[in-house]
Structure formats: C-alpha cells, structure tokens
Nucleic acid binder design. Structure first.
Length: 176
DNA sequence: CGGTTGATTATCT
DNA sequence: GATAATCAACCGT
C-alpha cells in the first residue's frame, strides 16, 4: 500500500474537528500516547478509520489515512473489498482500512516498530513538493477553513469528494 | 457524471 | 437521545 491522501488533526483545544478537542476519553486515549501508534475508531456504526499518532506524548495530534494505492497483495485486497474496481480498493478512509483487513485489534498498536499488524516505511525517494496539493478536510462538520488535507496530484486512488454534504436531518420530529 | 439518501451503532452530552 | 473524520446504491440528467 502506498499512501496518496491524508488529513491532519491537532490536539486538545486546537482543532474543533479533532476527536481530541475536548480532552482524553476512553475512545481517543490512543491519540495521547506515543507517536507512530495506530488510532483506529468506528464511525457511523459500520466503518473503521485509521490515524497515525503524531507529535509528543500528550499532544494528541494525529493524521488520518484517507486513501492509498494497493501495491502488494492486490488479490487479497480485491477479496476484502468485494471485488470493487481497483481504483476504489483504498479510495476513502474506511475502504483503506477494509482493504488492509484491519479492525479493532489494531487499535493502539505501533505502526513504526514492527510489533503490530502494520508497518509504515518512508518512501524510497523524496516526494516532489510540486506534486503535493492541499485543501479543506473532507466530511468534517467544523473548521472547514483549515486546509489540512494533503494528497498527491494525479493519483487515481485519491478520493474525489468535493465538500461535506450537510446532514440536514431535523432536530425535531414532524407530526402530521 | 453529479447529487441525494438509507444503513447502523459506539460514544459522548 | 443526538450525533458522527463514511459508503454503496439509487436517482435524474
């Protein structure tokens, strides 16, 4: 897997869109741990999203892995993604986790020391900064003005989402 | 192709 | 009890 798209989230009190915004909870405690650890969490009752913890302990900054290109074990990835088109195998944070076959067990494990199910490695060559674009984060309902989504220009695996489609569900129930 | 909608549950208020 | 860092399916064009 080669990462093609990520989003950054800051720590407590610094980022309205971050899970760590309101301090430690049982769910986000991993974010307050060591850099390089995996913070996996369940969203919308059906999907997993994966973050890599950044910064110092207690800082609770993290990077959400939004998309990637499957470079090894593509057969397995296709099976796990129910034979979706190759461009869609890891296009989106939940799809990426699904293509990797990760789940609750990977939460809190290290992605940098080889002790966990996933190992992050640096690119073999430096990335040309001209190929890296940035923009507003996808799907978040706060802090649209912070352009902390980064992706590689021209990658077919990058999620093409434009903006957050507001969930305009009424906060009340209409009685006829 | 672009826009909209239902699914489904852990977590926090 | 409302909400959510989403996705797949379905619509009309």
């Amino acid at each position: 897997m080669r990462l093609t798209e990520v989003e950054a989230y800051a720590g407590t009190g610094e980022d309205p869109a971050s899970h760590a915004q309101r301090g430690p909870t049982p769910r986000n405690e991993v974010m307050f741990g060591s850099a390089g650890n995996i913070y996996l969490y369940f969203v919308f009752g059906m999907h997993w999203c994966m973050n890599i913890v950044c910064g110092h302990e207690g800082e609770a900054a993290a990077v959400l892995l939004r998309a990637g290109e499957v470079t090894e074990g593509i057969e397995v990835a296709r099976e796990r993604r129910n034979h979706a088109p190759d461009s869609y195998l890891a296009r989106g944070p939940a799809r990426l986790v699904n293509a990797l076959g990760l789940g609750r067990d990977a939460n809190g494990t290290s992605a940098v020391d080889g002790s966990g199910p996933m190992l992050l490695t640096p690119p073999s060559a430096a990335i040309d900064p001209a190929l890296v674009a940035s923009g507003p984060r996808v799907g978040v309902t706060a802090a649209h003005d912070i352009p902390w989504r980064f992706w590689l220009v021209g990658e077919p695996s990058v999620s093409p989402y434009r903006r957050h489609t507001p969930r305009r569900r009424p906060t009340y129930t209409v009685i006829v």
